[in-house]
Amino acid sequence: MLLALWTNVDYVASVVLFCIGLYCVIAKNNLIKKFIGLNIMETSVFAFIVAMGVVEGGTHPSWEPAPGRRTPTPYPRALS
């Protein structure tokens, strides 16, 4: 379990960010702070999605063909 947590520490980081954002949205009364919280949550989800595309030793998918490129699929998700 701990090992799995360590390999997926990037995902765990985005969960932590997600919870920080959620805390801001729920606990703060200031509307601007709520909005900032929403933004943190949003960023955490994008970070999670982009992190899924990482391949060890990969390069950016738009560059010249090379074995082991990173997966392109998750990138556009973050556009929203």
């Binding site: 799995a4 390999t7 990482v54 391949v55």
Partner: peptide
């Protein structure tokens, strides 16, 4: 997320 396939 720990149960997801290993990162990278």
């Amino acid at each position: 997320v720990a149960g997801l396939p290993p990162h990278g």
